[in-house]
Amino acid sequence: MFGYFLKRILVSLLTLILVSIFAFSIIHLLPGDPVKLALGEAATEEKIAQTKEEFGLDKPQAVQYINWVRNILKGDFGRSILTRERITDLLKTRLPITLSLSIPALFIGVLTGVFAGVVSAVKRGTLLDNSLAFFANFCLGVPQFWIAIMGVYVLSRELHLIPLQGYVSPSESFSGFVSHAIWPVICISLSAFAVLARQTRSNVLEVIQQDYVRTARANGIAERSVITKHTLKNALIPVVTLIGMQMRVLVGGSIIVESVFNISGLGNLLVRGINSRDYFIVEACVLVISIVTVLANFMVDIAYGFLDPRIRKSWR
C-alpha cells in the first residue's frame, strides 16, 4: 500500500512540474508586454529596462523559470508587474473566496447529481426520468453565464430575493454570505449536477442488469438495499472519476460566474492577469488550479480503494 501511494505521489509531482513548465512557456508566448502595459505609453526605454531587471525579465527564460520555482518553494509567488502587490497575499485573500463558493457547489452538484441519476434509473422511462434528463441536458447545453444572468434578472431584479452582485465573507456575516453566494453556488453546481446525473443514471442502469443484482433480488433482499448497497457501490466507482474531474472545473470554472457576479475570487484574478499579461499572476493561478486538480485525482485514487476491494487489495 505504501508503494502504491509513493508511486501516486511521484506521478502527481511530475504532473505538477510539467504543468508549471507549460504554463510558464505559454504565457511568455502571448503577444503583449506587461511592463509596457504597466508603465504606459510614455515610459522611456531606460525605465522599461529597469523594471524588467527588477522583475528578472531580462534573464533567459530558463533562468526565469528556475528562479520562479525557487521562490515558490520558499512560499513567494512574486509580485504583480502591474500593481506590485505580493501575489502570495492576493492568493491568500482570493482562494478562500473561490473555495467558499466552489466547495458548497461541489457538494450540492455531486449530491443532487448522484441522487437525480439514481432516481432516473430506478424510475426509468417515467415522466420524472424524462424531466430530469431534459433538465440535465438543459444545464449542459445552455451557457453558464446565461443561466447566471437570467437568475439575477428574475431573483434579484424582479423578485428582490437576493442581492444583484458582490460577495460577503461568511466570517463577516453568515446570512449575508448565504444571500450573496446562493445563486453563484447554484450556477457553478449545475454543470457538476448535469454531468453526474447523466453518468450515474447510465451506470446504475448498467449495474442493475448484472447477475449479482439478480442474485440479491432472488434472495429476497429489500429493494432499498438492492439499490443502495448492491447497485450503488458498484455504479459509483466510475462516478468518482467524474467527481475528481469536476473539482478542477469548480476551481478554474468559477471564472465566468465570478465575472458575472463581480466576485473577486481566483477566477477574477486569473482573468485580470491574462488581460494585463501579468506573467506571475497567471502562472500562480494556473499552478494553484493544477495543484487542486492533482490533489483531486490523488483523492480519487484513494477513494477507488475504499469503493472497490479489488483495487484496495492490489495495493498490498
Partner: peptide, 18 residues
C-alpha cells in the same frame, strides 16, 4: 431466498464483487 432459493449459472458474476 427464504422458501425458494436460486443458484445461478455464473458463480463469477452472481456474487457482488464489492
Amino acid at each position: 431466498g427464504a422458501k425458494i432459493a436460486m443458484i445461478f449459472q455464473e458463480p463469477m458474476t452472481s456474487l457482488n464483487p464489492v
